[in-house]
């Protein structure tokens, strides 16, 4: 990714602020730019790949970067550039969908448990603890055996695996906020549960919840390839980035681009998402309160 000069970013930042009303700082903007770039790649990948992802174009394996194969070849001699571009579809798409579902469910349930308390809290907490105690490999195998393999199933499985964690963290945050005077006041006003969690709790835990979102995104990107290898989800010849690293790990001793580049792609995406989240305008909360 090319780095725009700093002053351009500042200008962009101001413009952005003018339109949306939030102030996004330059680092966050770089993060956003990278995310957008990968999204564009994901959407247009079938049109821009130089070779078909399944085609063997190199008699060598773990080939180096060259003029014909920009990112070298993989363990079978397939074009790495094409495989990475196509892999963006799975890694960006599936991970974002799964993390959004996991965090939304987890956070909503967590806030509900914290605000309601009592037996609702107990039952929800223990059920999700129990869910978290089931080993994810066993869980994945059961899903494959019971419902078979498809992308929606993969997304839901990833979400279910990460809901308990999101829940636990959100609940811990919400419990603290729940003891604050302004929540008590709102309760006395007779506000509904929905109002309480949306207007009083959520805005006050948004920062850490978003940080949790960013981290869970990383976990999901990595688990994705593990589940693909269990037979759940992305099917050959296609592969997500994690699976590319995994299938080409034999190239590590040779420093093959086939293993280095997908790792860098993962890192660029996950770091961007987290930088973007860290640098989200602090004022979102204030906006919400109006």
């Amino acid at each position: 990714m090319k780095r725009p000069p700093a002053n351009t970013i500042a200008v962009l930042g101001t413009k952005f602020r003018g339109r949306v009303g939030y102030r996004v700082n330059p680092v966050g903007l770089i993060g956003l730019a990278i995310i957008v770039a990968w999204t564009v790649v994901a959407l247009t990948a079938p049109l821009i790949i130089p070779h078909s992802v399944g085609e063997i174009v190199d008699f060598d394996y773990f080939g180096p970067m060259s003029r014909t194969l920009w990112l070298g070849s993989d363990y079978l001699g397939r074009d790495m550039l094409s495989r990475i571009l196509m892999g963006a579809r799975y890694t960006v798409g599936i991970s974002l969908a799964a993390v959004a579902i996991a965090c939304t469910c987890g956070v909503v349930l967590g806030m509900t448990a914290a605000v309601t308390g009592g037996w609702v809290d107990t039952i929800l907490s223990r059920l999700l603890d129990a869910l978290n105690s089931i080993p994810s490999k066993l869980f994945g195998l059961v899903v494959v055996a019971a419902v078979g393999s498809s992308i929606p199933v993969l997304i839901l499985t990833l979400s279910v695996i990460y809901i308990p964690g999101a829940y636990r963290f959100a609940r811990a945050l919400a419990v603290n906020v729940n003891t604050m005077d302004f929540v008590l006041v709102a309760r006395i006003r007779g506000e509904s549960l929905f109002y309480l969690i949306r207007a009083e709790i959520l805005p006050n835990i948004l920062g850490p919840v978003l940080a949790d979102f960013g981290l869970r995104f990383v976990f999901i990107v990595l688990l994705l390839s593990g589940l693909s290898f269990l037979g759940l989800g992305v099917q050959p010849p296609y592969a997500d980035w994690g699976a590319l690293v995994r299938e080409n790990i034999g190239g590590l001793p040779y420093g093959a681009p086939a293993v280095i580049v997908p790792s860098l792609a993962i890192a660029s995406l996950t770091i961007s998402v987290n930088l973007f989240i860290d640098n989200l305008p602090a004022k979102i909360r204030d906006k919400e309160e109006h």
Partner: peptide, 14 residues
């Protein structure tokens, strides 16, 4: 932040 996320982004087996 960058180091933390960068390191966690590398698969464990790698």
């Amino acid at each position: 932040t960058i180091l933390t996320i960068g390191i966690i982004s590398v698969p464990e087996f790698m």
